[in-house]
Write a protein that binds this DNA or RNA. Structure first.
Length: 878
RNA sequence: GGGUGCAUAGCUCAAUUGGCAGAGCGCUUCCCUUACAAGGAAGAUGUUGCAGGUUCGAGUCCUGCUGUGCCCACCA
């Protein structure tokens, strides 16, 4: 070829160049395919604008880009819609941190200024993650990039809210919700993490009006101030006498009833329960059953309020200490014990969540959940791996109404206005003032997952009937981590079905977490964070992608061994070097494609058979989302079969063969390389595309690998006989190498061989040369039938072939006898096993015929080999 | 408490409907042979966590157990 291949792959130079080239030619766009091509669409899980690239991003990009590139090569109009998420809480925290560093706060600067600062933040950092996704080779359509707070998407959010409201599925009300006192907002159940912690269990006396007391245990003495009952089990004899009487709240002497409810566990603590419906979810339910008042004794920042009497104004934890001390002084305390308990903490920030009564907006979720469950049950949506379907159903069966309002500044405003006359208007736009009534908007914003739930269709223009929406919705595969199955995937399914009447995608592929080598979650405090950028800088993007794709199985966590990245960097180099070999010295007029199967020599029939099996297997595996196994098979084929054997064998026709033989070998080499690059492209887009430039292409073939046709498997090249015969020849080569090693024949020393060809005379006559190339046999001769074995020689057998190596000076009869004895023992073991199997009538009767046949062939081959060696032993061992 | 995943070579992981347990890394020895020392050749390393069961045949399917992770859940 005209262009010479550089010595090595310069990924630093190539990655940027190729990415620009792809993008500038519009290859990432679905329009690159014919107008009538079937679409294949993935909505990218939008990273947070606050984020910096981590291994989770690297994994999802590797997987989704592989899917997209695979489908694109299969002729689909592939569209990968990218974008970012405003991530309301996460971003707000960052901006608040920034404000704090300037000595101010969200409250002090006011809503407008806060929003201005948040947008500045978005513009500054939102692009960073996008640039990093590009470095990973993400072939998404950047012209269709979206942000959840873009005008169009914001409009979709308002539209969705208004529709749900009009359908009676959104309501507002005071409810007990998970409250984050630091952020001063409600958070959803999913945003609360429950960790076991060692706390204390406080035992104290609840005085009863008219004398006596009930001992009660609590983990949170400060909530005593909000108690509205003491509950005991109806059958508990200890406390029968008090049921119906009043107890007095310690320190503030508020009378509350003693009630009986079988919810109380007699065995736990004292068997009596203080009921604080304003600050505990269980107690709230209990209070509903007994018509108890619900007292909220805390402010939004979790300091105690006026209802707490002398404790008003104290922080909840300070109050805990104070009230306990006061109760002790008053003789009401019994004891304090260490106690393992579950403490709810905010997913973001980690502070202790306080259940609080507040006015919030909710979605009545049951009707949406029902459709979502049905879609999976009916098979309209398939989850990979399948086991997550169970988790999905379980969650839907137990779903609670979704609290969608957040008391945050950054996010989608709730489209509700309150009139000065006390009216309430739900509308996408501000109602016009009339009759002196003015309107003020609702202060709250929506849960960030509300807009995320619309993502697959809002990014395509919904609720406008855009051409994109018509052509590319529903999407095909939704690929994301199993950790956001509930947060995100389910919400998309519910909203998609509800608003578009269609499942937003037909397949959900879930990947696992990327952990460190020893399986620990990556964390800054542990110092075990693997930075993908660091490895991309050192080894390039391809090795990182290949490693992530081949390190695990669907749905399971990956313990990332970074040494694999280095190994795969060597694999990239290996591919480069084998390409260099294949492309070196190709004639300009080389015929396209491989010769017909009938025109091939044995090694070529073998490698072409292996290649076409590989194409079939890789295609099948990728279709089944088995990217790991598919990648490993390509690896094993390229390095273990093509490079180690075929390339070495091809050197004979290349260097010593006739022109026809040489050209045939070149065509096979080129075909294998060409096909391998196609198969590998979804895994390693950069090195494969860069090499593609140097390959001669048939007329009409794409100049860009990214658009080239996916490798097709042609069964005409399947050749079991060639594979079997070649396997024997390889065994012989290995055997000769072993003999050389064992007898310490210098590697450079050429030896001679006599070959008893058995039934393989034809193969050995045509390709006996492989022994010269692969194990340094200078000359060899095929023996006639019945010809006696040469004196002082070592024997290597495979099938019914035997190679004799006359190594007079090296051979010691005793050693050779021992070696052969070991060989034959090994063979006998295997023969016995096989004979045993074949002697079993049940096996013959019940095993699959091809399995039986395989065993028969195996026995035949092993027996022939053993016979050769035995025969030899009679001569050597004496 | 319910559900679910994992357990295979020293380490990280494979094993496509049950059909000869493999790879990479690391380790030992040798080799700079004209694609590649970022390479090549040879080698050692396994009761597939334990105990049963189904089957001609189990790493794979079933039951129980042990260890470990995750998800869900209202014991103060």
């Amino acid at each position: 070829m005209t262009q010479a291949l550089p010595k090595n792959f310069d990924f630093k130079e190539a990655e940027d160049r190729l990415y620009r080239w792809w993008e500038s030619h519009g290859y990432f766009k679905p329009e690159a395919a014919p107008a009538d091509a079937e679409p294949f669409v993935i909505s990218m899980p939008p990273p947070n604008v606050t984020g910096a690239l981590h291994t989770g991003h690297a994994l999802f990009v590797s997987l989704e880009d592989a899917m997209i590139r695979y489908q694109r090569m299969n002729g689909k109009a592939a569209l990968w819609v990218p974008g970012t998420d405003h991530a309301s809480i996460a971003t707000q925290l960052q901006v608040e941190k920034l404000l704090a560093s300037e000595g101010t706060s969200r409250e002090q600067v006011g809503r407008d200024e806060f929003l201005r600062r948040a947008w500045t933040w978005k513009h500054t950092y939102g692009g960073r993650i996008i640039d990093q996704l590009r470095r990973l080779g993400a072939s998404c359509d950047w012209d269709r990039e979206r942000f959840t707070m873009d005008d169009g998407l914001s409009d979709a959010v308002l539209e969705a809210f208004v529709r749900l409201y009009d359908q009676g599925l959104i309501y507002r009300g005071p409810r007990l919700v998970n409250w984050s006192p630091g952020l001063k907002t409600a958070v959803s159940d999913l945003e609360v993490e429950r960790e076991e912690e060692i706390g204390k269990l406080y035992f104290f006396r609840y005085p009863i009006e008219g004398g006596g007391f009930i001992p009660v245990a609590t983990t949170r003495p400060e909530t005593i101030l909000g108690d509205t009952a003491v509950a005991v089990h109806p059958d508990d004899e200890r406390y029968q006498q008090y049921i119906g009487k009043n107890a007095l709240v310690p320190m503030i002497d508020r009378p509350i009833p003693v009630i009986a409810d079988s919810y109380v566990t007699r065995e736990f603590g004292t068997g009596a329960l203080k009921v604080t419906p304003g600050h505990d979810f269980n107690d709230y339910e209990l209070a509903q059953r007994h018509n108890l008042p619900v007292l909220s004794v805390m402010n939004r920042d979790a300091t105690l309020n006026a209802l707490a009497g002398q404790y008003a104004g104290l922080d909840r934890f300070v109050c805990r200490e104070r009230i306990w001390a006061d109760m002790t002084a008053a003789g009401l305390t019994i004891e304090v014990r260490d106690h393992t308990m579950v403490v709810p903490r905010a997913e973001r920030g980690g502070e202790v969540i306080e259940p609080m009564i507040s006015e919030q907006w909710f979605i009545r979720i049951a009707p949406l959940a029902e459709k979502a469950a049905q879609a999976v049950r009916d098979g309209h949506i398939r989850i990979v791996p399948e086991r997550f379907e169970k988790v999905y159903f379980h969650w839907l069966d137990n779903i609670e109404d979704w609290c969608i309002s957040r008391q945050l500044g950054w996010g989608h405003r709730i489209p509700v206005w309150y009139g000065s006359d006390g009216s309430r208007v739900v509308s996408k736009t501000t109602p016009a003032a009339k009759d002196g009534v003015t309107y003020t908007p609702d202060d709250d914003v929506l849960d960030t997952w509300f807009s995320a739930g619309l993502w697959p269709f809002s990014t395509l223009g919904w609720d406008k009937q855009t051409p994109d929406l018509a052509r590319f919705y529903p999407t095909d595969v939704l690929e994301t981590g199993y950790d956001i199955l509930f947060f995100w995937v389910l919400r998309m399914v519910m909203f998609g079905l509800w608003f578009t009447d269609e499942a937003p995608f037909h397949t959900v592929y879930l990947h696992g977490l990327v952990r460190d080598k020893s399986g620990r979650k990556m964390s800054k405090t542990l110092g075990n964070v693997i930075d993908p950028l660091e490895y991309m800088n050192q080894y390039g993007t391809d090795p990182l992608r290949f490693t992530l794709l081949t390190s695990g199985t669907p749905g399971n966590d990956i313990n990332l061994d970074t040494e694999r990245i280095e190994r795969n960097w060597r694999f990239v180099n290996k591919i480069w070097q084998m390409s260099s070999f294949v492309l070196g010295g190709l004639p300009d007029d080389l015929e396209a494609g491989a010769p017909a199967p009938s025109a091939l020599d044995l090694p070529s029939r073998w490698i072409m058979s292996r290649l076409h099996h590989l194409s079939a297997d890789v295609t099948r595996l990728i279709d089944a989302y088995q990217f790991g196994e598919a990648g490993r098979q390509i690896d094993e084929f390229l390095w273990g079969e093509f490079a180690d054997w075929y390339i070495e064998i091809s050197k004979y026709p290349l260097y010593n063969g006739s022109d026809a033989e040489k050209r045939a070998a070149q065509r096979v080499l080129l075909t294998v390389l060409d096909t391998a690059l196609r198969l590998l492209h979804p895994y390693m887009p950069f090195v494969t595309e860069d090499l593609w430039r140097y390959l001669p292409h048939a007329p009409g073939e794409s100049e860009a690998l990214i658009l080239a046709r996916w490798a097709q498997s042609d069964p005409a090249y399947f050749d079991d006989a060639a594979e079997a015969e070649m396997t024997l020849l390889i065994d012989l080569v290995r055997g000769i190498r072993i003999v050389r090693t064992q007898y310490e024949v210098e590697p450079g020393r050429k030896i001679t061989a006599l070959i008893q060809p058995g039934t393989h005379r034809a193969a050995l006559e045509s390709c006996g040369y492989i022994f010269s190339r692969l194990c340094n046999v200078a000359d060899y001769r095929l023996m006639t039938d019945g010809e006696a074995a040469p004196e002082n020689s070592a024997a290597v057998a495979a099938g019914d072939m035997t190679v004799f190596l006359p190594l007079a000076t090296f051979i010691d009869a005793t050693a050779e006898c021992e070696r052969l004895t070991r060989e034959v023992e090994k063979l006998d073991e295997q023969i016995a096993r096989t004979q045993n199997m074949l002697g079993n009538e049940q096996f013959i009767a019940r095993a699959r015929p091809d399995v039986v046949e395989k065993e028969r062939a195996r026995l035949e081959s092993l027996s022939a080999t053993a016979a050769q060696i035995r025969d030899r032993m009679t001569g050597v061992c004496g």
